[in-house]
Structure formats: structure tokens, C-alpha cells
Design a protein around this nucleic acid. Sequence first.
RNA 1: GGCGGAGUAGCUCAGUUGGUUAGAGCAGCGGAAUCAUAAUCCGAAGGUCGUGAGUUCAAAUCUCUCCUCCGCUACCA
Length: 493
Amino acid sequence: MKDFYITTPIYYVNDKPHIGHAYTTVLADVIHRYNKLIGNNSFFLTGLDEHGLKVQQSADLKNISPQEHCDKMAPEFIKLWDKLGIQFTDFIRTTESRHIEVVQHILTKVNESGDIYFDEYEGLYSVSEERFITEKEFESGNFREVKKIKEKNYFFKMSKYQQKLIQAIKSDELKILPQTRKNEVLGFLENQELNDLCISRPKSRLNWGIEIPFDKDYVTYVWFDALINYISSIKFSKEEDFFYHRWPADIHLIGKDILTTHAVYWPTMLMSLGLPLPGSIFAHGWWLTDQEKMSKSLGNVINPLSLIDKYGPDSVRYFLMREMVLGQDANFSEELFIKRYNADLANDLGNLVSRVTKLISKFYDSKIPKFVNQDSILKEKYSNILLENRIKNFEIHTLLKEVTDFIQSINIFLEENVPWKQAKSDLELAGDTLYHSIEAIRVSTKILEPVMPRKCMEILQILSSEDLGLDWGSLQPETLIREQVVVFPRIVD
RNA sequence: GGCGGAGUAGCUCAGUUGGUUAGAGCAGCGGAAUCAUAAUCCGAAGGUCGUGAGUUCAAAUCUCUCCUCCGCUACCA
């Protein structure tokens, strides 16, 4: 069976990583880990986009070579991913030879198949920015020295695949999620004729790029180069078995700002190559901050990434996953973070762990008590969480809501059965209550583990059950509870 | 301008093909409990479901008017 294959965009090294990069990457990591949890082999690719004008300009400003600039930026990303516990399978940089070779191979192949032609391009050129600008950019009035100039370039026959692309999107052969993004792309494709894509830049103007293999005077347009990372990483054209064991990707995770490149350029490139299309493209929303509350003059601007140092990576991962509704924009503030953390992690889950483990220490000498009844309301509720479906539909947010609801029901279960009272008259009955409670905690933790790997491992270690799976009833009576620590200390202002 | 989305309790949002007193979490209020991280549980309160009209036995849910906000309208990366 083919591996599950998930990607993030490769991030442009012009910028230091910010919350948007972190969100996409955490989401990919979480989906990757969930797939492993349910028994799939999963391949998770992320990396860096290192060519193009802006990289060259950034390097020029610092008086270093573009490659040096990239080599300085790359560790910024890798360090952050390490901090956030990102377990990518491969990290690709577009300046690596393994990528460059594939890009050139593809250019050659597409050229030979007749999908590339040489033509004159006329556009609005900004002298100060050293690049062509769009009509929209021109209308914004932010560019002073704008000239209309002509330039010879190579074009990819994207328009040739317009109808085929519309068909693929309509039929969900290429699924674009969420639905509104699919509508957007279809509206765009059906209402106008697609133009061909200019895929080269003359070296006289820009030389930081991959040389066009059949014309030494040109380098490859950065998007044409960058998108190919999704297949160069997995050895397209080099190791067929390795490649087809992963391609097509199950999901390309992207921000909504790069929808067109992924939903139009990329699939048409694949069509030209005769490769299968990715299963889905998921465009997520953006993190917003309340303009009124976040202002420099008030001095209360917070860098979201600073929360990692302050409160730990796992709780940030949880917040990102829990707070953003699928595909929509979400608000970000430290206040929201603290509320969410205290409510779900400290008050509910963390406190519950203390509550139950301490009862077990007190009444059962720290050993998991025996159960009397096979079934309980908790076991039944657990069986209603359809983990696999949620993961297949990328409904991480809904899944987390279901798990927190389940955790709440453990607290209710305790209130109803009052094991601290039961224990005084009927140790066996109280033991049954506690077994079902602690097992419910264990499976909840297991489900949360892909989101909060380190913290959940701590809890599982307390229960001496790091190696147990998702099945209800795996926890064995007599298992020793280890020393309790406060896993999610409450945040007090 | 064109196409599309959204406007539901103080806040963040759920609300299947129209159908009993519109739901959840958080905040606030009252109470219970005291095993637990001043954590937990219960209860009440809180909404003319953006506006106006229409269709219907029945509309947050369908149709139309208007108001507000947002997205897309490519070949920047």
C-alpha cells in the first residue's frame, strides 16, 4: 500500500518564520502523527524555497551571496521546528542538487513534449524593484518608475490544460478544500481563458535561480522551480519504486494566499508530465490579532512564538489546533491562549489526572484497581469518537472538541459515582469507578498524543502505559502509578 | 463592477434535507461538593438567529430588498 504523503509549502527564506509558518507545519505534523497512530506509513515533507529575486536582494543588502543568505536562514526554521517537536520525514531546500537535477530534468521533458515555447512578453516593469509588477500592483500606485518593456521568455502551455483542470476539480479528482476555495478556483477558471505561464527569467535581470537546461541565458521562474519540490524530494525520475510508493500526495497543506499556484500551476504541470494529481489541496486561514488591542503605541504587541518559550511547545500546538476552525481565520491573543489552556488543559485534563491518580494512590497503594463491570458510560462514549473518520476528513478541530467533551464526561462520571465516598464502604465498587476513569484518561491522552507528544508522554508515563494502544481495556489492573507531577500547571496572572 | 462567503447569547462559535420551549464552551450569577492544580459538578439567567417583506400549517434554515464585514478577480514571492 502507498504511504500517506503530506506536505507543507516550502517557506520562502526572505522572512524569518512566523506564526503562519508554525501553524501550517504543526498541522502537518499532527496529521502525520495521527496517520501513524492509526497504522499508516506516513511521509511528511517540509522545506525551504531559496531562489528568486527577493532572496537575491536580501543577500545583496547584507553583502553576502544568496547561498550564504539561505544557509543562514535555514537553521532559523530548523531550530523552530525542533523546538515545536516537528517530526518531518524529509526537509528539502531548493538549492540542493537533488532538487535542481529534477527541475532541469522536468524542464527538458516538458520542452521536448512541446509544452514550452519561446515568446516575447510585454509587461509593466518597476525599475526600482527590478521586477515586473502586476496590473493590480500598478494601480495601487506604490511603484514610481514603471515602464512598459518587452522581454523574450519561455512559456509553459498552461492554457492547454484548462478544461481538463476544471474537470478534475469539479469531479473532486483534485479535491480543493474547504468548499469556498474550490468555488473560488472554479469561478476563476470558468470565467476567463487561462493564459500561459512565463517560466523563465533572463539572467541579465536575475541570476539566482535554476538554469534553464536548454538556454544558458535564463533561469527558472521561482514558482515553477518551487512546486517541483513535492516530487523531487521523493525521487521523481530517479527511483520509480520509491516515488510511486508515495505519489500522489494525499494532501498539500497551504495558506489561502497561495491557492492559485497550487490549484492551477501545479496540477497543469503534473498533467504535462503525465503524473497523477494530488488527492487534495487544503487551504487554511490566517491568524488575526485584534488591531485595537495590539498596537505598538500601547506596547502590548506579542510575538506568538514567544508563547512557546513561556508556556511550552505542546500547549501552543494544542492552542493552534483547537482554536482555528477548519479553513477559517482565527483570532490570536495571549488572553485567548491562557483561557483555552486553563480551561481544557489545566482545569479539565491536568486536574483530572491528579484527581484520579491521587485517589488510586490513597486507596489502592498506587496500583490500578480491578474493574467489576466490563462496560461503563465512559467506554460507550469513547466508542463514539470516530478517530479514523476525523483524520481522513482532516477534522482535527472537531476531534479535539470531541476529546475535551469526553474528558468532561470523566469528571461528571466521578461526581456521579463519588469514588472517594464509595471507597469507605465498598472498595471494589470504588475500584471499578476508578478503573474506568483512569482508562478513559489513558485513551484520551493517547488520542491527544499527536497534538501534544511530550505532555501526553508524561501522563502516559505516570500511568506506566507508554506502550499501550487505543483499545479500551488495555490498561491492566495492578499496574503501578508512578509519582505524580503537575502536568499542566494553571496559569495565574 | 463581476463571482462567492459571512452577519446566531457579553466573547468564540455549533445549528443536518424548513418542524416540538434556538445549542456548546468561556465570562458572569446562584447552589452542591471538598477526592483534585482555589480545580470539579448542578442550576438559573442571558438571543425579536443583521434589516424589511414574502412563500408555508411551520423558517435561523427557502425567495427577494436593503445594511455591514470579508474573500477571489492569476502569471509578485
